[in-house]
């Protein structure tokens, strides 16, 4: 714990992330107003004690929408990270532990998936089953798979030559046992750091996909969907655009700072500082 507190950026990043996560989770049990409550007479109200962030073009309470939207954005991105890590990490470990044909196959597969930007996957799924939050989850999740596979393989390869792995082999452990017992625990920190980065990218991607109508659909809401709803009136009522946009920026900055801090706290040698960007 003291080691964590020694990294101020980690503390700030985690605190910011937690704050937004709590706001999002709170929306599951309580929002100031029901998000689907449309009161046309009370639309475009400025912030007031009654409506902290004002009301939108349908008279819905902006603060309530932001809370629920934050929840959706986090949820979509988190499930996508779980999909990416759940499939990508075993693939990467298998590539490192078996090598040869397995490794070749995993690398080609991840090259192949890289050819499908999240938006293309979302377009295909939407053409297939219609729009919905699930599309965004699957599209971002698929994009995450090769990212985690590469990180896991790279990390595993760098420790596969160490003595304790050789000792495991001498003790008669098979590739699967080596991967699970020796490689996985040692790359966990790498995976967590990458997970933070992909979480922030996932929130950005969800916003983009929902904004063009490929993601979350009403009556649900997400920060990206709020921007889509505000699109028609944003020149006259920029406030409706500023609020959800700023939320996205703050969440992503908090996550990125937390990720950077985490990397420094876990292993200063891992400073590489680069990320991929999903659209």
């Amino acid at each position: 714990m003291r080691r964590v507190l020694a990294h101020p950026s980690l503390v700030i990043g985690l605190a910011g992330t937690l704050l937004f996560a709590v706001i999002g989770l709170l929306s599951m049990v309580w929002t100031p107003y029901p998000i689907e409550q449309i009161v046309v007479a009370r639309r475009f109200l400025p912030p007031s004690p009654e409506h902290w962030l004002g009301t939108d073009n349908l008279g819905r309470d902006m603060a309530s929408l932001v809370m629920a939207g934050t929840y959706t954005s986090f949820l979509v991105a988190a499930i996508a990270v779980a999909i990416g890590a759940g499939i990508g990490v075993p693939l990467g470990l298998a590539a490192a532990a078996w090598g040869g044909a397995v490794e070749w196959l995993v690398l080609r597969l991840s090259d192949f998936v890289f050819a499908f930007p999240a938006i293309v996957v979302a377009i295909l799924i939407t053409a297939l089953i219609g729009p919905g939050a699930v599309n965004a989850i699957v599209a971002i999740g698929i994009f995450n798979i090769p990212v985690f596979a590469r990180v896991a393989r790279g990390g595993a390869l760098s420790i596969a030559t160490l003595d304790f792995v050789a000792a495991g082999r001498l003790a008669g452990l098979g590739n699967a046992a080596i991967a699970y017992r020796h490689l996985l625990p040692n790359i966990m920190s790498l995976i967590i750091v990458q997970g933070t980065i992909q979480l922030s990218l996932g929130i950005l991607s969800e916003a983009g996909l929902s904004y063009v109508g490929l993601g979350t659909q009403p009556p649900e809401t997400s920060l990206g969907l709020m921007l889509r709803d505000a699109q028609g009136v944003f020149l006259i009522h920029p406030w409706l655009t500023l609020v959800p946009g700023l939320c996205i920026v703050l969440i992503v900055i908090a996550l990125n700072i937390a990720g950077d801090g985490l990397r420094d706290a876990i292993d200063p040698r891992l400073r590489q500082g680069e990320t991929h960007v999903a659209s």
Binding site: A207, G224, F234, T241, G245, V252, I253, I257, S279
Partner: peptide, 17 residues
Amino acid sequence: QTGVAIPNFWFGMLLTL
């Protein structure tokens, strides 16, 4: 750090404004 966190389409809206 701020630039990577801004969604490009939202930035587009701000530029338009």
